[in-house]
Design a protein around this nucleic acid. Structure first.
Length: 217
DNA sequence: CCAGACGTTGTT
DNA sequence: GTCTGG
DNA sequence: CCAGACGTTGTT
DNA sequence: GTCTGG
């Protein structure tokens, strides 16, 4: 699955690769965790790509409580068209999640170890995501996101059964363009990465001693 | 009809 | 909001 | 995600 | 088992 990832590439590199016209500031982060603000790229009303910071953990608009606790950090590609929690988002609110590494865990509870998967050149790639906007009674808005998972490819399978859905660059626009590309068609782009594409490196427990980003709530 | 859930992962 | 279970 | 904690009182 | 803090 994908419950921890990384984006340490300089903002200029991410901007150049993803081609957004506007961005919210973000520092390079070796550990990006559920509940934290994370960067997504989405098409907005001007038809252009924008980089926005939203909270990791999907909170559909009909949730009663604000998304304080843990929410839905992953969505299975196989069920994303059917589940009430995802149906609206996969049709109207698809996004890219820039990353240059994701972690998968292995080992027994209490002594888990992580493997960091990257491209050989450590360049940023796009994970497939969905986002939501939650409206508070007082009018405040909170935006959230979730990362779509698929079966592990041969690189990841020794460590874990699932992995984030990575989108080929030539598919980025179709995934983002919810006006032109219907959900059923977009979901066909979600597949395990080609075998041999990713490089894995054992990193122990990267959470040990790590400081966390400030919460937004 | 109403009430309650609505998700994934991993673990038991 | 929409579906499922009772 | 994992690791580690997991209370009371008083009030609704 | 479930929540919180990192």
């Amino acid at each position: 699955m994908c419950g921890l990832y990384r984006l340490v590439s300089p903002p200029e590199v991410v901007r150049e690769r993803f081609g957004y016209v506007e961005e919210e500031r973000f520092p390079p982060r070796p550990l990006i965790r559920p509940g934290e603000p994370v960067g997504i790229v989405r098409l907005e009303d001007d038809g252009a790509r924008h980089f926005r910071l939203v909270l990791w953990g999907l909170a559909p608009h009909w949730m009663k409580e604000p998304p304080m606790g843990r929410r839905i950090i992953n969505a299975r590609a196989e069920t994303v068209l059917e589940r009430p929690a995802f149906r609206g988002a996969v049709r109207y609110r698809r996004c890219l999640v820039p990353a240059d590494g994701f972690y998968e865990w292995t080992g027994p509870r209490g002594s888990k170890r992580a493997v960091l998967f990257t491209l050989p050149d450590a360049r940023p790639f796009a994970m497939a995501g969905l986002w939501e906007r939650w409206q508070a009674p007082d009018g405040g808005e909170i935006e959230t996101m979730t990362i779509i998972t698929v079966d592990a490819n041969a690189d990841v399978a020794p460590v874990h059964e699932r992995m984030p859905a990575l989108l080929r660059r030539e598919h980025w626009q179709a995934w983002l363009d919810t006006r032109e590309v219907p959900a059923q068609e977009a979901v066909r782009l979600l597949a395990p990465a080609p075998d041999g594409m990713l490089k894995g490196r054992s990193v122990g427990n990267p959470l040990k001693g790590a400081a966390r980003e400030p919460r937004l709530l």
